[in-house]
């Protein structure tokens, strides 16, 4: 009594959803950082610019 199909499918779906989630979070972070860099490049800085740590993060 094996249900390889269902097991494979459930692991597959879970992996897919997790992969999509990670990809989304990753891509979102990349896009935001790029936008920040663009704004930074066009000479707009935050009011409380200050610490170098800020840029490292």
């Amino acid at each position: 009594m094996s249900h390889g199909f269902y097991i494979a499918l459930s692991y597959g779906i879970s992996a897919l959803i997790v992969a999509l989630l990670i990809a989304w979070v990753w891509w979102d972070g990349r896009a935001r950082r790029r936008e920040l860099a663009e704004l930074e490049g066009s000479g707009i800085r935050r009011r409380s610019t200050a610490t170098p740590k800020d840029n490292a993060a």
Binding site: I22, V25, W26, D28, G29, R32, R33, L36, L39, R45
Partner: peptide
Amino acid sequence: LHLMAMRNEIWRRRVGAQRRM
């Protein structure tokens, strides 16, 4: 993922604030 998403959200808000500025 939660930490990463929170970080993204903070960046998103900064982008918004800087754009308004």
